[in-house]
Amino acid sequence: MRANRKLWAAATVCVAVIAGATGCSKGDDKAADPFAGLTADAIADKGVETTKAATAFHMNGTGKTDGEEMTIDFAVDDKGNCKGSMKAPSGGTAEIIGTGGTSYMKGDDAFWKSTGGEEGASSEESDSMSALLKGRWMKMPKESGAGEGGPGAFCDLKQIVKGMDEDTPRKGLTREADADVDGKPAAVLTKKDKDETTTFYVAKDSEKPYILRVVTTGGDEPGTVTLSDFGRPVSVTAPPKGEVVDMEELMKGAS
Rank of each mutant, 00 (worst) to 15 (best):
G149P: 09
G150R: 04
G150V: 06
P151T: 07
P151D: 07
P151E: 05
P151S: 04
P151A: 05
G152D: 04
A153S: 15
F154T: 10
C155T: 09
D156L: 01
L157N: 03
L157V: 04
K158G: 13
K158V: 01
K158Q: 10
I160V: 11
I160M: 12
V161S: 01
V161P: 01
K162A: 11
G163E: 05
G163S: 04
M164T: 04
M164E: 03
D165G: 02
D165K: 10
E166S: 13
E166K: 13
E166R: 05
E166Q: 12
E166G: 04
E166F: 00
D167A: 14
D167T: 11
T168S: 10
T168R: 03
T168C: 03
T168L: 01
P169M: 04
P169T: 08
P169K: 12
R170C: 03
R170K: 15
K171E: 15
G172D: 14
G172M: 10
L173V: 03
L173W: 04
T174C: 07
T174G: 04
T174E: 15
T174K: 15
R175L: 09
R175C: 09
E176I: 07
E176F: 04
D178L: 11
D178V: 12
D178Q: 14
A179W: 08
A179V: 06
A179E: 15
D180Q: 15
D180H: 07
V181L: 11
V181E: 13
V181A: 09
D182E: 15
G183V: 12
G183N: 13
K184H: 09
A186D: 03
A186Y: 06
A186S: 12
A187Y: 10
A187V: 12
V188N: 10
L189S: 05
L189W: 06
T190I: 01
T190R: 07
T190L: 01
K191V: 04
K191A: 09
K192C: 00
K192T: 15
D193S: 14
D193T: 11
D193K: 08
K194H: 08
D195Q: 08
D195E: 14
D195I: 03
D195G: 06
D195T: 11
E196V: 08
T197G: 05
